[in-house]
Simulated scan of single mutants.
Amino acid sequence: HPMDRGYTDYQQVIEQLALHYGVVGRIIYCHDIPLPALYHHTRGVVTVNSTVGLSALLHNLPVKVTGRAFYNIRHLTSQCSLDQFWLAPEPVHTELFNRLHSLIFRESQINGSFF
């Protein structure tokens, strides 16, 4: 999470979980790297409910939401199972995302920074 980046080292916990779930070598733990720099090496994004999902959609990457997110919409994010997502993620419906993106900025965003 951006508010926790670099303050807690999760490397050991992530390695233990990766071993437990059989995904060693498929997880990269990093922080302070701009997400768009990673997207060029990514075929999809799995998130709980983060704005990372919106960022991935903006870059036309398939997204699987595992929690609750207002943008978890059929044809926008993958509605298939997580197992199916790894094999064949559903593509982003670009026109639908553009309409949502426009609505978000028009109705709920103010230029500037919280910090």
Rank of each mutant, 00 (worst) to 15 (best):
N60Q: 11
R99P: 02
Q84S: 13
E95K: 10
A69V: 08
P36Q: 03
Q11Y: 13
N49H: 06
R5V: 09
E107I: 09
H59Y: 10
Y29M: 08
E107M: 07
Q84C: 03
Y7H: 14
Q79S: 04
F70D: 04
S113N: 10
R74P: 15
P91V: 00
C30G: 12
L17R: 03
Q109H: 15
D9K: 09
Y7R: 11
G25E: 03
Y7A: 14
Q12S: 14
P91F: 07
A88M: 02
F115T: 12
L87A: 09
H93V: 02
K64A: 05
R74H: 06
L19H: 09
R106P: 05
N60E: 15
Y29T: 06
G112F: 04
N60D: 14
P89S: 04
P34K: 08
R68N: 07
T42H: 11
I73R: 03
I33F: 10
R74N: 13
L35S: 06
N111P: 13
S81K: 02
L58E: 11
Q11N: 15
Y7L: 15
F114C: 05
H93T: 05
T51E: 10
I110C: 08
S113K: 15
P36V: 00
P62Q: 06
I110K: 14
F85Q: 01
I14M: 05
V45W: 00
Q16R: 15
P36Y: 01
F70W: 11
P36F: 12
Q11W: 09
I33L: 05
H75Y: 13
R5D: 10
F97Q: 00
D83A: 15
T77K: 05
L19E: 07
Q12H: 10
Y21T: 01
V63M: 04
R99Y: 06
L54W: 00
E95H: 14
P91Y: 01
W86P: 01
R68W: 14
V24N: 12
F105E: 04
R106E: 10
G112Q: 00
G22C: 10
V92Q: 00
G25D: 02
S78D: 07
F97S: 06
L17P: 08
F115H: 11
G112C: 01
E15K: 15
F97I: 02
